[in-house]
Design a binder for these strands. Structure first.
Lengths: 203, 203
DNA sequence: ACCGCACATGAACTTCGTTCACTACGCAAT
DNA sequence: ATTGCGTAGTGAACGAAGTTCATGTGCGGT
């Protein structure tokens, strides 16, 4: 099971090269010939390993999602007895920090669209669920789970923070927008925390 | 100034064709030869009119943004004396409705990335400001404008709703996720409204 | 009628992703 | 050791896409 044959080694190297390429020049720089050249293999080998370019992108994105999951996860385990607002703020800022630290890599996850019929690998959904699980755990003390309310709330919170970050990065983060991003995230988190606290008569 | 020469007519027709093409098959279907064929002109003409394919996409997206602006705008003028939550809900649902009604067109706005150096046309920013203006007007009675708080709040609210909608559409809106989308949007709006109302001691 | 300019044209060029006939290599059987 | 076989690497060739540009053409002015 832990045998790492030549194939697995090569596969890992290609994913790594592709990852740094995305990190430095964005998703558009991921070209078959270029990867092949930089990874020291033939174009055809990429297709043996990943099926097509989308497969390679998916592999890189899966890695990125795993990294994000690790970041959010470790932010989630230290929430201890903090207030709801503080818990949400920690998680949200972990997300912001990750997005800023791996800007292009992170953009690639949402920028990439796989062709019509194909759907994302199971690991995507698993990572998504793991993320939502962390959020659900963080709000468990404050939101009842009737009718799946807690899940809905977790998704809404994630989407809200995600949207703010996505729009901010889209404007390419010129100058003051970086501090504005942080202000917006802190604001939405505070409002949501207040709203949740004062609204236990959930519709 | 209002003379519509052949060029302007053709330009409009091409944008219209491109718009319906995006609407029906998504951004990837926007191919130079295909547009040329369906619009009844030569490939080169497209380049005379729009510079390149990105220019055409930008033209279509500008139109889409204008449509969105009109939708949100007309939702904004009837907010009258409604509660804050109701105001935000109307605006947010107008946004959701637009995104669902023009799904692929709307996706194209955020899916499209213009190449490295180029930046979006002024009309993008104007439409963005107009949208934020509507939101700011809607919350003006409830949020003071000190330190640009109102602007920050408007942006945060827009981003929050946008993020929820974007993620929901990304999962391709299978079955129940449509009602979940609505639930999430209503929830975040309610939480924010409660938060704003009970938090006039803004940090 | 002539000229000249501005623009439409589409074949050709470039750059991609992708394929596939061929090769190289390892391993098992003889 | 030799042979045979199958798996996987190779890169030239192909097709599809964006883009260019030499050429044609129509129209307004003289």
């Amino acid at each position: 099971m832990s045998e790492t044959g030549y194939r697995e080694t090569l596969r890992g190297e290609v994913i790594a090269k592709a990852g740094t390429l995305i990190e430095m020049e964005g998703l558009a720089a991921l070209q078959a010939r270029r990867i092949a050249r930089e990874a020291g293999c033939a174009v055809g080998t990429l297709y043996n390993l990943f099926g097509d370019i989308d497969g390679l992108v998916v592999a890189v994105n899966a890695e990125t999602l795993a990294l994000l999951g690790a970041s959010i996860g470790s932010a989630g385990v230290v929430l201890g007895t903090l207030s709801l607002e503080e818990r949400l703020a920690r998680l949200a800022m972990a997300y912001v920090d990750f997005a800023l630290a791996h800007q292009r890599r992170w953009e690639a996850v949402f920028e990439h669209r796989l062709p019509e019929g194909r759907d994302a690998p199971a690991s995507y959904l698993e990572d998504q669920d793991r993320l939502l699980g962390v959020i659900e755990a963080a709000i468990a003390d404050f939101v009842p789970d009737a009718n799946g309310q807690r899940g809905i709330t977790a998704r809404a919170l994630f989407g809200a923070v995600h949207g703010i970050v996505a729009l901010a990065l889209d404007n390419r983060l010129g100058g003051r927008s970086l501090t504005e991003l942080e202000q917006q995230v802190r604001l939405i988190v505070r409002l949501a925390a207040i709203g949740i606290t004062r609204d236990n008569a959930v519709a």
